[in-house]
Amino acid sequence: MDIETLKQKMDEAHYVYDDNLITTLFVAINLDRPLLIEGEAGVGKTEVAKVVAAALGRKLIRMQCYEGLDESKTLYEWNYQKQLLSIQVNMGKTDDDTLTKSLFSDEYLLERPLLQSIRSEEPVVLLIDEIDKADEEFEAFLLELLSDFQVSVPEVGTIKAKTKPFIVLTSNRARPISDALRRRCAYLYIEYPDMEKELAILRSRVPHVDERLCVQIAQAVHDLRENEAILKKPSVAESLDWAEALHALGVRELTPELMKSTVGFVLKNNEDIATLSEALDAAEAEPEETEEYRRRHEEGEHCHDHHDHADGHLHDEDCEFEKTGKHCGRHSHA
């Protein structure tokens, strides 16, 4: 598969991508390398696996990692109850060796995601999600699969992959991933999207939301990410949720009041919400020089609604009031 075909397939799957992602995917697919994706939570790491599965027309097998995950939950487990039943039923009917051998056959093997992915007749996409949540022992256990596409089951021996799965591992960097695992993977880091890409994602994923509102959401989310005081930056998933929430409320324009009341969709901790509220209150108390202000100032229009024309105003050489007697929109005029 060449890059252009891959792009076409990603387009068909309605995924907003950049050249970096496409080239990395191309390399990983062509070299049959597992792909390790890192990035902040909610930037679309898991989505890449789903979209690749859709683009390649393969089945997606997902394995969610967590602390304490072991091979019985990821690779295989023997069906003990069925084995015990079989022993009791066949006791005396068959000789011991045959019975023992039959107990460790496919009939009693419960396949878990890793085994499923390598025993599948059709190639699949295997998503190992949030590998950083699993234990280091599990990481070491994965190495054989990632490098040789095979696993070892003590009672059966080594099982080689019938078809090579495309493996995607994701990590939020909650803990460092071992070098051994990294070396076996192609690496992709997904950053927060810039405003243009965020807008494209909003247009693609929530097409029913008003275009003007999408622009305002993208701008607001971008500003929140730029804000150093915000500890947990909003992710793409959160901006999509926010757009849906605002749409459900029938909102057409994002105002500071609406931002305050719906901020829970985009910021997820109290400190950040308090920081935003303070920033919004400060902005309300001291309105910034908007485009409208500037235009009016340049045109030297009278601004009735903002000034009480008290004595003792600031003098400014550039002030239109000084020259023309018209109000400028910046100062209080006597």
């Binding site: 970096n20 990395t24 191309f26 390790l36 890192e38 070098d179 990294r182 070396r183 192609a186 690496y187």
Partner: peptide, 10 residues
């Protein structure tokens, strides 16, 4: 980008 994918692991 292609070479970075191959060589860089973090």
């Amino acid at each position: 980008t292609a070479l970075r994918t191959v060589y860089a692991k973090s």
